[in-house]
Amino acid sequence: MDMPESQNMPNMSNNVTRNMNMMSFYWGKDAIVLFAGWPDQSAGMYFLAILFVFILAMTTEVLANQPLIKPRTSPLVGGMVQASVHLVRVGFTYLLMLAVMSFNGGIFIAAVLGHAFGFFIAKSRTLAVTDTEKDKDSSVTNHV
């Protein structure tokens, strides 16, 4: 027995029903990101959601591409630190995935730009550390 569409989902808003029926990107502040009622069709809260997704993506990339263990660290301590960072990074990654599944174009762009900016920060810091180490090695070699 087929029921009319309005009786299948009586408690859902039009936005959620639209997103369930049509899985394609849409633009605008009427998104549901991670939690029901957030950002609640407010431009300020939508901007906050975009900023949150950007920072979350940036943090994920920094955690994924930054060496956190110093040389001569105990293997047990090093493993625990790496496992803890991995736990946080995977949790952030799943939150990002769920946010992008809101199919809001602004949220998607914020996630992609956050990943790119985080990668840039992590790699530029790594290059700066590498250059500093090369300068130290060359100064020691020149004085010997």
Rank of each mutant, 00 (worst) to 15 (best):
L48S: 06
P39S: 03
S139K: 15
K123Y: 08
M20S: 07
T130L: 15
M20C: 08
I32P: 03
T60V: 07
M23N: 12
K70Q: 12
F35T: 09
G37C: 03
H86M: 14
M45Y: 06
A99Y: 00
M101K: 10
T141E: 15
K136L: 10
M80C: 09
D135A: 15
T60Q: 06
L76D: 12
P67R: 11
V77I: 11
T130C: 10
M9W: 08
A83T: 13
T73L: 08
L68V: 10
A128I: 11
D40T: 00
L76F: 14
S124P: 07
V85P: 06
V112L: 05
V53I: 03
A99H: 01
N14V: 08
F119H: 09
T73K: 06
F119D: 05
T60F: 02
T141H: 14
F117E: 04
N11G: 03
M20V: 07
V81C: 04
F47T: 01
P67F: 07
K136Q: 11
F119K: 09
P10K: 02
K136W: 09
F25N: 12
G114A: 02
G114V: 01
G118I: 00
H143C: 13
R72N: 15
H86W: 13
G118V: 01
D30Q: 08
T126R: 13
S138T: 08
L76M: 14
V53T: 02
G91V: 01
T141S: 13
F92R: 08
L68D: 04
P4L: 07
G79N: 05
T17P: 06
M101P: 09
F120Y: 13
V90M: 09
T60E: 03
N104M: 02
V90I: 11
F35A: 10
R72G: 12
T73G: 05
A64N: 05
I32S: 06
A122H: 05
H115S: 12
E5D: 15
V53Q: 00
M22E: 14
G105C: 04
